[in-house]
Design a protein around this nucleic acid. Structure first.
Lengths: 333, 333
DNA sequence: CTGAAAGCGCTTACAG
DNA sequence: CTGAAAGCGCTTACAG
């Protein structure tokens, strides 16, 4: 390559990296040869010499109880954002555990880590903290920031409160939450707990009756959950569904039971907006901003990589956005 | 590392790779130091010296008209299988196009490529063929094998035929297919066309009436599609849904219109079996074996990497598996 | 059974 | 503004 352009290898390197000024002429010379030969520097050699791989690692959970479609939205937006910043994306699974994280960083496969689905008491947290590479969590575990990790997430507490606020404003006095699978709460996946807390606290403040119903995946579980919920007195007139996997089943069952939306029941779905499109009714939603979160995570990581000094850990919580559509209405008194 | 174990660097390398015999004693010595120091060889250095990265690249489509949940199943199984074979997975998107493939291979970021969603006249095909690295396609484009690429896929032609066969055996004489979005056919994504061909040909052979209804995503499109389909004469009594995204909407709409399953209408869903679980009725399915396909792709790639001589391209088509459940029954005469 | 040495293809101080 | 040289951390013939 260097000889094709009639310059020294170092010059090629400098042209490509822009790390020092180059005369118009040699730059053109080099760029032309690069194009002609379809030259791409050897990634391993570059990594070895520069200690930079230009690879980001994303650790995803592969859990049946988390929604695959939502996961894929995160993955999509992270890989797209990474490429926009001239980085590649390595995919890791949660199954690799703490040692997987060590492997990837200590063998210099990736420069930084984006980690999803961190649980309370997650054994990966201490490792992540000791890694000495930029780390951003998507999803904020309770109490992580003081422990020194950077997170981005939807403000699920505010999201829970905002749902309650909307329903209360519409006059609903008895509301219910269909939440994620019990297994999700049990693992201490904090988004579930935070949403629930926001929901509960806001209900107390607004003086409305509020019950919570975690729901396992599968149609049977959904039906059972609705049985329980609809039997309550006073009658539930406001429903929040914070569980993408069972949302279609909930809608189908409500219809089968003759509960009309919004006449008999107002419903808010907490899910990516794209998902609301496939539903029979235009749903009032609190959006899960998967795409923005993925982009933000990448941008924060890239910024950390650009500055040599490790930046102070921060937590960025996106404010929830509630969009009213046809599935919520004032309570019929 | 080498000094910690009191041996030469080359010895460490040989212990780790197993490429030559080592005395019990030095092996133990080395292994112990490896554990103690948490040593992992530098991936870039290894790649540079050995021309092997131990990284597989997976190229996924990020298209709204392909089902995200199904995509994620493929991704999951590929990454899991790759790790089982001691390889990492780099994720690329279709958006990167032909030059993305060149970039990844010519900069030696990955050893081999697994590519999804290859279309008719896909500009990536000639590039893929010229790449001189193992390539496996998930999803067999028509006419690709003679062009020299290895593929794995479900035998969609047989799948279409098998659906028709099942319904015809049950006595249905007028059947319909709700297929993927028109955009999918237009792109020449071959699974859609192959399924349709199997469906059409088998219907001809069995002498049943058969119509095809591509369906765009979204509830409105689904409703329109059903309007058209249910207006047909003679009345459709057998329905095949080969479109995961609209399946829940189809079921909801059928119920809303008072069409009972299987009394009024027998329905077969073509989708991953996991997806059938979340539906109100236990559905007769032809499974899309995403997990198996991903595993097979990885195994074929790994095998190609192990043998130095490039192996002859082959196409492996999995036979469809139809599982009868509660949504299909003999036609009420 | 093991080691010394060359070399993989870059980047980056060091010189000029 | 540019080049020669060292060095990144491995692997793999080459010797013994």
């Amino acid at each position: 390559m260097a000889r094709a352009a009639g310059v020294a290898p170092s010059t090629v390197s400098y042209v490509l990296s822009g790390k020092r000024s180059i005369s118009e002429e040699t730059r053109r010379q080099v760029e032309q040869s690069v194009r002609k030969l379809g030259y791409h520097p050897h990634a391993g050699a570059r990594a070895l010499a520069s200690s930079r791989t230009k690879v980001l690692a994303l650790v995803v959970p592969l859990r049946a109880d988390l929604n695959m479609a939502v996961m894929m939205q995160f993955v999509s937006s992270v890989v797209t954002a990474a490429r926009e910043h001239d980085h590649d994306l390595l995919l890791l699974t949660k199954d690799e555990g703490p040692q997987g994280l060590r492997r990837v960083t200590s063998s210099a496969i990736a420069d930084a880590l984006i980690v999803m689905d961190v649980e309370a008491a997650d054994p990966r947290v201490p490792v992540l903290r000791s890694l000495d590479r930029p780390v951003v969590l998507i999803g904020a575990p309770d109490q992580i920031t003081p422990m020194g990790l950077t997170c981005v997430d939807l403000d699920f507490t505010a999201a829970g409160a905002s749902c309650v606020g909307h329903l209360a404003d519409l006059g609903h006095r008895s509301i219910a939450l269909i939440g994620p699978s019990p297994a999700v709460y049990k693992r201490g996946t904090s988004f579930a707990g935070r949403f629930l807390r926001g929901f509960t606290d806001a209900a107390k403040v607004r003086g409305v009756r509020a019950t919570s119903h975690p729901c396992a995946p599968g149609y049977e579980a959904t039906r059972a959950c609705l049985d329980e919920l609809l039997a309550e007195e006073p009658k539930v007139t406001g429903l929040i569904v914070h569980n993408e996997a069972v949302l279609p089943a909930v809608l189908t069952e409500l219809q089968r039971r003759g509960r009309r939306m919004p006449e008999d029941l107002s419903l808010i779905a907490v899910c990516p907006d794209a998902m609301a499109d496939n539903q029979p009714v235009s749903l009032t939603t609190v959006a899960i901003p998967a795409t923005e979160l993925g982009e933000m995570a990448v941008e924060m990581i890239i910024r950390q990589l650009e500055q040599k000094a490790p930046s102070a850990p921060e937590t960025r919580l996106l404010s929830p956005r509630l969009t009213q559509r046809a599935s919520t209405a004032p309570r019929k008194s």
